[in-house]
Nucleic acid binder design. Structure first.
Lengths: 122, 122
DNA sequence: ATTGACAACTTAGAATTCCAAGTGTTCCAT
DNA sequence: ATGGAACACTTGGAATTCTAAGTTGTCAAT
């Protein structure tokens, strides 16, 4: 991480990733590169990448799933001020995240069921 | 930090501090206790307190000034209660509740199907 | 009395090292 | 062939250790 913008490294990474998300280079639902890979790419330690992802997480731009990866959320979440995780709005975002999680789980289970009931028509 | 809420320590501290800010125990403009003091009070390491403050910082609830302290920002905004349960937000919470109900129902039906199609998968 | 040095705090950023826990794959033994 | 163990990755949380840099108070020398 050499950029001489004066910004700390973890914020530079936040900006970079947020840009890629907004630009569509990282579409909703896709996984970010792993922490190790990002650390390698930006030439920083894992702790810096973790700090960056932590910011994106509390912003709601991204959701981490243990053991799998960090995924771009379906809703940019437009949270300009405070509000992001406090008060009613934060509550709602939390619940939405959980419901999205549940939906994904249901989708997966349903897909498994389908391929069992309607075998091999690929 | 012993509380058995299941929440990680740094989020418990976030909640605690956010509560004190909203309740007025920490009015806008006042400094939080120092990182060392908070670590002592909650019986966690400085890194945990830093993580908590980092969340509050990216939420905009608080602002850190190097060499001086961490100060509560002047933007309580966050209309206390009235709006959160009335108006658009209350509406949204209601819809969330209904969707949660639907999700639960779908989960149950799916579970029934699964146990019919995949018999005895302990 | 003013200035300068210094010590003690403070936040901020970064690296490193653990451990816990979830996921996926591979491979071997039954 | 199927089950299960083992392994490799993954995120998440936490502690520890540095360094950098800003603030404040004290104290001594001029």
């Amino acid at each position: 991480m050499v950029e001489k913008t004066g910004q700390p490294a973890y914020l530079q990474i936040v900006d970079e990733l947020r840009g890629q998300i907004r630009s569509g280079a990282l579409p909703a639902g896709t996984a970010l590169p792993s922490i190790a890979q990002l650390g390698e790419r930006f030439d920083v330690s894992a702790s810096v990448v973790k700090a960056a992802i932590s910011v994106l997480r509390t912003e709601g731009a991204v959701i981490g799933q243990q053991g799998k990866g960090v995924f771009v959320r379906e809703v940019p979440a437009e949270v300009p001020e405070a509000v992001s995780a406090s008060g009613a709005t934060g509550e709602i975002l939390d619940q939405l995240a959980q419901m999205r999680q549940s939906l994904k789980e249901l989708r997966d289970r349903l897909a498994a069921l389908e391929s069992a009931v309607f075998p091999e028509q690929k």
